[in-house]
Simulated scan of single mutants.
Amino acid sequence: MEKIIEYTELYLYNNALVSKECLCMGVLFHDTTTGERRFNSIKNFNRLKAFNDDIDVDFVKAYLAGIKDEVETDMFYLNSDFTTSNFIKSFVGEMRFSDIVSCKTNDDDFIEKTTKLLLKQDFARHERLSRDEEIKIVKNLVKSSACNYSQKSLDGLYGDTINFNFIVGQYCVKIFDFKNRESIKKSIASVKTWSYNAGEMKKGGKYKTVFLYSISENINEKEFEIVKNILLENTEHVMELKDGVRFLIQESGQECAI
C-alpha cells in the first residue's frame, strides 16, 4: 500500500543567531496515511560532546526522551488533529526542526532506512545501509518529492555519453563513497574525471552538477580535502549525502512551484 510519510530533522545549533554549524539530534516521522508517529533520536552521545563539549548531556537525553513521549505515547494519539507543522513550530532557538519533507512510498521499512541514512554515524558499521541501499533510498526520497526526476544519459561536449546517478530538474547528481584512506587514494583519478565532466556541464549551460558523498569518521582529513577541492573546481555543490538529499528536495520543490 502506498503511504505518504512526512519527516523533519531536529538540529542542534552551536549558536542559533550566527552559526550554521549544526548536529542532527533526531528525526520525526508522521505517516499521514496510517497516523503512525515516530521520533528516532541519537544514541551516540560522544558525537554530541565532540560537537559541543560544554553541553549538559543528561539534560539533552531527557529533552529528547520528552519529545519521543509526546510524539509516540498513546495518550497523545487521542489528538486526531495532530499535524507535523503545528508540532514543530514551537521549537525555536538552538534546537529546532528543519522544513518538512513529504514522501510517497510503498516500503514498509521506510522509517528505519531513512533513519539509518540521516543518523548514519549513530549506527555500528554492520547495522548501516550498504552503498547501494543508500543510493536507492536517496533516489526514492528525491524522486518522491521532485517534479522532474530522471536517470537518462547526458551528452558531453564531444559526443560522448555521461551517466550520472540521476538528474533532478537542472541538477545532475554523482554519488561517491569514501570508506577509508585507501578508497580516497584510489578515487583520485575518478574524481578528476567527474570534475572534468562537471566542467562540461557548466560549459553547456543547461545543467549544474551536484557531488554527494558518504564518508567514514576515520578518514584522513588532509587527503579528503584534496579530493573535495578537486570536486569543487567546477561546481559549488559538494556535500554529504544526507545534506544533499535536503538540498535537492528543496531545490526541486522551488522548480515545481515556478
Rank of each mutant, 00 (worst) to 15 (best):
I215W: 01
I55L: 13
W194N: 05
T161Y: 00
S85M: 07
E2G: 02
K116R: 14
S190Y: 00
E134F: 08
A146Q: 05
S80W: 01
D107M: 02
W194S: 00
V71A: 01
D243M: 03
E70F: 04
D58N: 13
K43G: 14
S187F: 00
C172H: 01
K104T: 14
I111E: 13
A50L: 12
K20S: 15
I219S: 05
E221Y: 09
F164T: 12
S102C: 06
E182D: 15
K61Q: 11
V191N: 09
K152A: 11
K152S: 13
T193R: 11
S19D: 14
F123M: 02
T32L: 06
I249Q: 12
L141Y: 01
F164Y: 15
K152N: 11
I5Y: 07
M95G: 03
E225R: 14
Q121A: 15
L231P: 02
Y207E: 00
I88A: 09
F45I: 05
G244E: 10
N15W: 07
L48R: 06
T32N: 05
Y213C: 08
M239L: 13
L64D: 08
K61R: 15
S214E: 04
N46V: 06
T83H: 01
T73M: 12
K179H: 08
T161I: 13
I215K: 09
N220W: 00
E112L: 13
K208A: 09
L12I: 10
V92N: 14
L232I: 01
Y11T: 06
A146C: 12
D107L: 12
G66R: 11
I226V: 14
F29W: 05
S85R: 13
I188P: 00
L154N: 03
D108C: 05
A50S: 15
V168C: 14
V227D: 02
E233Y: 05
D31C: 13
S90M: 04
G253Y: 08
K203Y: 07
D132L: 11
T83Y: 01
I137P: 00
S102T: 15
F87S: 03
D122M: 07
F176P: 02
D54M: 08
N220D: 15
D58R: 11
F76W: 06
K43A: 08
E225Q: 12
D54S: 12
M95A: 13
A124T: 10
G169T: 06
E6A: 02
F59P: 01
V173P: 09
G253K: 04
V238H: 07
K139T: 08
K203D: 03
Y7L: 10
F211V: 07
K104M: 10
V173K: 10
